[in-house]
């Protein structure tokens, strides 16, 4: 049988842990620690060639291939962000419960919308850090590239416009998705306008008009993109609302 003193110690420890996660002070120290972790990272990153491959593969795959000597700040940031997630969730819930009787509901809810937006953005990064995919290839007019799920994409036409001074001023690439050799969908790649099909995005990374019209294409899958967009929109909504309300409040007080 457990002795009462032992149970009391455990309960106290649990209370202290909860108090830690419910505290605004914790959020402040976690933000400060995260700030320093990223600062170290920004100094380490340009000095080590290993980081050149970080943008072409999922973060967690990259972490598995590289030594802790250069990745410790990334592990540290992930740990701090995990703690910050728990802190954000608990603080938001506690704030909503504590202030539920308040009539200024917009002032109460808008910081929580910002927090939800922030958490969605973290979720987006988590999904992209595990399940993203990126592959580059060179293509010409008339060539075709194999895609996952028995799909392919054919490059039908490449149009390049040059300015009088010789710079590329505009471009468009006509593509067609193929399934078992049959055309199923036609689309155009333009500047800032990629083509999306069944979760894959096709982007034009580079274009050469001479000697043969050549394009560097990237096929990518970014599973966090939708969540990042939702998170961004919520964050935007919450921030703008809170800003207006806080300025009104400060001006009237």
């Amino acid at each position: 049988m457990l002795c009462p003193a032992y149970i009391s110690v455990k309960i106290n420890m649990f209370k202290k842990l909860l108090a830690f996660f419910f505290s605004l002070r914790t959020a402040i120290w976690l933000l400060l620690a995260l700030l320093f972790m990223l600062l170290f990272g920004s100094l380490i990153m340009p000095a080590r060639p290993e980081f050149s491959s970080l943008n072409s593969m999922p973060l967690f795959d990259w972490l598995g291939e590289n030594k802790a000597g250069i990745t410790w700040w990334l592990y540290g940031s992930i740990l701090l962000l995990s703690l910050l997630t728990a802190n954000t969730l608990l603080c938001s819930i506690e704030s909503l419960i504590r202030k539920q009787q308040s009539k200024k509901w917009l002032l109460i809810i808008s910081p929580q919308i910002i927090h939800i937006g922030f958490l969605f953005m973290l979720l987006a990064h988590l999904l992209s850090s595990t399940g993203s995919f990126r592959g580059n290839t060179v293509a010409y007019e008339g060539s075709a590239l194999a895609l996952p799920n028995n799909l392919a994409v054919a490059i039908k036409d490449i149009t390049v416009e040059l300015s009088p001074s010789g710079y590329v001023s505009d471009w468009a690439v006509n593509i067609e998705y193929l399934s078992d050799g049959k055309g199923i969908k036609e689309d155009y790649l333009k500047p800032n306008s990629p083509s999306f099909y069944k979760g894959l995005g096709i982007y034009l990374k580079d274009i050469r008009p001479y000697p043969v019209k050549t394009v560097l294409l990237e096929v990518s899958r970014e599973p966090g993109a939708v969540w990042a967009l939702i998170g961004g929109l919520l964050f935007m909504l919450g921030t703008v609302t809170l800003m207006i309300l806080k300025i009104k409040k400060e001006s009237s007080s």
Binding site: M45, F51, N55, P194
Partner: peptide, 14 residues
Amino acid sequence: WAYLAWGTYWLWTP
């Protein structure tokens, strides 16, 4: 913009 132009909303750069 980065997602529409380069296929990712985040790049690991300083």
